[in-house]
């Protein structure tokens, strides 16, 4: 047991003053200490992608970083996607295209796809499939996830 450290995480624009051991992963700190349980943990060793969040504009595995390393980063989690009661285009598309079944992997896929579409709204099918191959869905609903992200890309393109 090592001493807890005080630190501040910046998540979805809000400050969270927390106190954690250095060994606590960012994913665990988001859930346990910030109360943001939308970020899910599957494998806890960087393979499944359930814990994918966006840090300083790029997707990361929140289980492969320690919370003490995330101080000063602008973090975004699934809780930050909706604007009030209004879902993001990607969240709506997941519902409309049946992009989730059990829903466990969904926050990771949403954050992964959000970062991909923000970076390149005109992403090709081939690139999109390559990006999405990063995360696992044990319901194996991949085709509908691809459809949902594709539909969201069109929607976002049309509204911009």
């Amino acid at each position: 047991m090592t001493m807890k450290q005080d630190l501040t995480l910046l998540v979805n624009g809000a400050r969270y003053d927390i106190s954690v051991e250095p060994r606590k992963t960012l994913a665990d700190a988001l859930r346990d200490d910030c109360g943001l349980t939308g970020t899910h943990l599957g494998c806890e060793h960087g393979v499944c992608g359930a814990c994918t969040i966006i840090a300083d504009g790029a997707p990361i595995r929140a289980c492969l970083m320690f919370a003490v390393q995330a101080e000063g980063m602008a973090l975004r989690t699934v809780e930050g996607l909706a604007k009030g009661n209004e879902w993001s285009p990607l969240q709506k598309a997941f519902v409309e295209h049946h992009g989730l079944q059990c829903g466990y992997c969904t926050p990771g896929f949403l954050m992964l796809a959000t970062s991909a579409l923000e970076e390149n709204p005109d992403i090709s099918d081939e690139e999109l499939r390559d990006v999405l191959s990063s995360n696992l869905c044990r319901c194996t609903g991949y085709e509908n996830i691809v459809k949902a992200v594709r539909a969201a890309a069109l929607e976002m393109g049309a509204s911009s």
């Binding site: 992608g49 840090a55 790029a58 997707p59 990361i60 595995r61 492969l64 970062s115 990006v131 990063s134």
Partner: peptide
């Protein structure tokens, strides 16, 4: 090399 979220870090 792995996937995008790994390549970020």
């Amino acid at each position: 090399i792995a996937h995008a979220p790994i390549r970020t870090r």
